[in-house]
């Protein structure tokens, strides 16, 4: 299970990149006012570069799970039937569109229509990237992965970590605060609750609460109930940190954004990230390798 760390890092970072791009980028690109002013363009650029950086890191670390990484140039050879090829195709498309959009914003070229069109295309490519990532694990040979648990968990991780990363950036780097921060924090809290409930709902499929997977020739994985429980505990702690941030923001808005929010939001981000990483290790631990 621990040997799958490159896949854990790749999937969590890639999903966070998509979530950050959508949650932070949508209001910036499609709200009224456009990109006429320099601060808005700077914010757009920051979101794009952060998402691109995360995708680049995810792509780099994914090579560590290959035993012949230099042969990976052929990885698009089987787009017709392989979800792994499709995942890489949409991953490259997402990254390329992010890079083109960032370049246009950096150089100040292209109109608002083009920027929005590229944003929509990048978003579609990113969603297809995470969808392909989900489908490649939905194998008939692996009943623990072959149901809604996989795509729902992956997209939940994307939106949750994307929103929290956006909130953490907002809390840490905007001394004046952001009017959107409170609803964003509230949304994060709801998403953490959703992740918690989803883990509870799907527990029986994954051998928790005494349930056993059907007999097969696939060896059992090394996922432990302790890992599952640790994830739930960390998510609860993360939601408490989020609640503290919302309370601070509500009770002292003037002071909140300056110094009071960075710590609880940052702590929530770290805790939820740890929770999602533990959850992903548990995911890969469902299935053993022969």
């Amino acid at each position: 299970m621990l040997k799958e760390w490159p896949l854990v890092a790749f999937t969590v970072a890639g999903q966070t990149a998509l979530g950050l791009f959508l949650v932070a980028g949508l209001p910036l690109f499609f709200s009224r006012g456009g990109a006429a002013d320099a601060p808005a363009r700077g914010s757009r650029l920051a979101v794009l570069l952060a998402a691109l950086g995360l995708m680049a890191a995810a792509s780099f670390v994914s090579f560590f799970h290959l035993h012949h990484p230099f042969r990976a140039v052929r990885v698009l050879a089987n787009v017709r039937t392989s979800w792994l090829s499709r995942e890489v195709l949409f991953e490259l498309g997402f990254m390329a569109l992010l890079a083109v959009l960032a370049f246009l914003l950096w150089t100040g070229t292209g109109g608002e229509g083009l920027h929005r069109g590229l944003f929509a295309a990048a978003g579609a490519s990113g969603v297809l990237f995470v969808w392909s990532m989900s489908k490649l694990y939905m194998l008939k040979a692996v009943p623990a992965w072959d149901h809604a648990y996989t795509p729902v968990s992956f997209f939940l991780t994307a939106v949750l970590l994307g929103a929290l990363t956006a909130a953490a950036f907002s809390g840490a780097f905007r001394p004046g605060g952001s009017s959107a921060l409170k609803p964003l924090l509230a949304a994060c809290l709801v998403l953490v609750a959703a992740a918690f409930l989803w883990a509870l709902l799907t527990a029986p499929v994954h051998g928790i609460f005494g349930a056993r997977p059907p007999a097969s020739l696939t060896p059992p994985g090394g996922a432990s109930s302790a890992l599952y429980a640790a994830r739930l505990i960390v998510l609860v702690l993360g939601s408490l940190a989020l609640a503290a941030a919302i309370w601070r923001e509500s009770s002292a808005p003037a002071l909140g954004a300056k110094a009071g929010l960075a710590a609880p939001v940052g702590l929530a981000w770290v805790l939820v990230l740890i929770g999602e990483v533990l959850g992903r290790f548990h995911f890969y631990g469902q299935v053993g390798r022969p």
Binding site: T81, S82, L84, R289
Partner: peptide, 29 residues
């Protein structure tokens, strides 16, 4: 063979399925 991203797994005319170890990238999918 359908899952392999680099088409390293192929089927001969008589039905035998082979792995081309010169193409395999070792992703273990």
């Amino acid at each position: 063979g359908a899952a392999c991203p680099v088409k390293a797994i192929w089927k001969r005319e008589d039905g035998i399925v082979f792995v081309d170890t010169d193409l395999c990238i070792g992703c273990r999918y």
